[in-house]
Design a protein around this nucleic acid. Structure first.
Lengths: 353, 353
DNA sequence: CCCGCGTGCGACAGCGCTGTCATTGCTAGA
DNA sequence: TCTAGCAATGACAGCGCTGTCGCACGCGGG
């Protein structure tokens, strides 16, 4: 009676090869290959013999060798984001993974820590690892050099921030309109002094959000530059910017925070200071409902899914022209953005005055 | 003057090989290999010629072929967790990635969605992809079959939940003690009716936390079974369990929630119901400080880092015996766990009564 | 009875790369 | 002057696998 556990190779520490399987089954290498791969033209009895032998040896096909022999690069898609532990990025990764899975593709991820040089390193690394497509939340502000990657047949999909100086797929949010409408919302509640806390100016998303802010303020004759703060790139700097804004002699009556991290930092600072200006944040986040925070919401999981779809389409060459998807946002009203301005503050921030 | 951009291969859609580089540089394949890999025994001038050619062609080494030729399996470590979008898992992944990076290793991740079958599929997939080590937050409750993987020389490291029926490395939290001390904390504040909302009973972490709960309750003659709820595996079921617990005629005066998701669900439900029993949650989470939630805290990034270290040690065979790391937790006092019991409720839950 | 055809199988080359060993052309020491 | 000895290079096999092609065998139809 044959042993049913894979222990023949136990402890030898190196994976059995197809040749060993073939020998054990008493067939040629090629026949073993056919059997293992489920190809036709193998007698049922032979196939069973091979499969038994494979099982006994604990054989697993060496995918790398298999792909190499077939001239296929790989079925792995690379995703580079800023920081895996940021919920926005991890939700994105989840969406990408979900979609890839439906196509029998695999995902590898890496974090650039929002550092352009690190990002370049990772891209190189991924390319040498023969990834099939690259999905990127990029920190680099000039992507012309990446044309070479596309030329090699590796599609690049930009997510959240579109590619600069390169014709490539992208999935981005409607940052301008999302922010503009949020600011309109605040102005409608009587706010005239509205603070803006934004991320690094280098980031495209940030710039678009700021432009939306400027447009809304301008449309109502308000000065957008009086309470603007930039470069809030992590919790610490976000808190600092917020503290700075709220403790000055003439603080804004409302705050717009341009991403989830900054919103969290602002909430912490507001809680510490014991003040509660009106607040709208870009990006929804967990517990925003419990905390009653009004946000410009969108679905990062969905963004990831769409990005993966674009990547797959490109891999399969179903499309020749780069495709650009803009995802609309929606204002989720929960209370913090609906606090009205104190009457005294009204009219304190006209451009002319 | 040579062209400085990699455009010679532009648009051909398939990566240049080392042979092409060698041809362009007018040297042999092997010399090109040496030059590209930075090996010694290559004249500076020759090396420069090769590197130029490589650059012109946009050449990148095919890592898979290189590893295959050297008989090395890969430098990729696989991580399987429940759900990438859970902050606990993504923090874990971040730690693993950070540590791996210092060793020039790569990470690929996948989500099992906490489904044992899906997990098994992924493990198989990873093994065929020749991963070098496997880090697992496992949903499977019998790991004997995985001995075969270790026997092939692929180290397995269990994180958060230890391996069952297998001698393998593990990194787990001190779930029992963390929970026990949290419950003691509540009892010291006068609570005698304490609810416990836990995850799937199948999960080891859950069972350990529940045991800690039972022990603390028992030590004070309190009935642990009266307000226990299990199987709260996602936000919806957690909210349901919490709602159920808090709307019964005789609700507990304090709540212990056994992981971050359940804590969030409980907070949402409490906020909707407008009640505020004392609350301590297992796992710290973002905004817990703003919300003043007392938690049993630990550092998931660190857990990931330690797991990766164990994996690397095992890969390098620096250790023969499995190693088991238990990470202590600490109670982070923020207010919600310090709300005292209403006087009337005291003494309502002795085991004898 | 022979031919053609389909089935089942194996020999062989080669995917892109590296390890090993051989070869060439020098230079320094006897 | 001759010979180690070394630096620089290349020929070749082979990593584990698959594609191509060719061969042997059995079957049915002319």
């Amino acid at each position: 009676m044959p042993n049913t556990t894979h222990n023949t190779a136990s402890g030898n520490g190196s994976a059995p090869t197809l040749l060993q399987v073939a020998a054990r089954a008493g067939v040629s290498l090629k026949t073993a290959s056919r059997a293992v791969n489920g190809e036709p033209r193998v007698a049922d009895q032979t196939r069973a013999k091979v499969l038994d032998a494979a099982h006994d040896l604990g054989f697993q096909l060496n995918r790398a060798a298999s792909l190499l022999a077939r001239g296929i690069v790989s079925n792995v898609v690379g995703l580079i984001t800023g920081d895996l532990s940021n919920p926005f990025y991890s939700a994105l990764a989840k969406g990408v993974e979900q979609e890839l899975r439906t196509q029998d593709m695999q995902l590898t991820v890496a974090s650039s820590d929002e550092e352009p040089d690190r990002e370049r390193e990772l891209i190189d690394e991924f390319v040498t690892r023969q990834i099939r497509a690259l999905i990127l939340v990029s920190t680099i502000d000039d992507h012309r050099a990446m044309q070479a990657i596309q030329d090699r047949g590796i599609p690049v999909v930009f997510v959240d921030r579109s590619g600069i100086g390169i014709g490539a797929d992208s999935v981005v949010l409607d940052n301008h309109e999302g922010t503009r409408s949020a600011i309109e919302h605040l102005i409608r509640r009587g706010h005239r002094s509205i603070g803006f806390i934004g991320d690094l100016s280098r980031l495209e998303t940030h710039r678009q959000r700021f432009e939306g802010f400027v447009e809304a303020m301008g449309a109502h004759g308000l000065d957008p530059n009086r309470w603007e703060r930039h470069g809030a790139h992590n919790l610490a700097t976000a808190r600092e910017a917020c503290y700075n804004l709220l403790t000055q002699p003439d603080p804004p009556t409302a705050l717009f925070t341009s991403n989830n991290r900054i919103t969290v930092g602002a909430l912490q600072t507001m809680s510490e200071l014991g003040v509660a200006p009106a607040l709208i944040g870009f990006d929804d986040f967990e517990l925003a409902d419990v905390l009653g925070v009004t946000v410009v919401a969108h679905d990062p999981v969905d963004m990831g899914r769409i990005a993966a779809q674009l990547a797959i389409e490109a891999i399969e060459r179903r499309r020749t022209e780069p495709s650009s998807v803009v995802i609309p946002t929606r204002l989720l009203i929960r209370g913090s953005g609906e606090r009205t301005a104190p009457a005294t503050a009204t009219g304190g921030n006209t451009k002319s005055g």
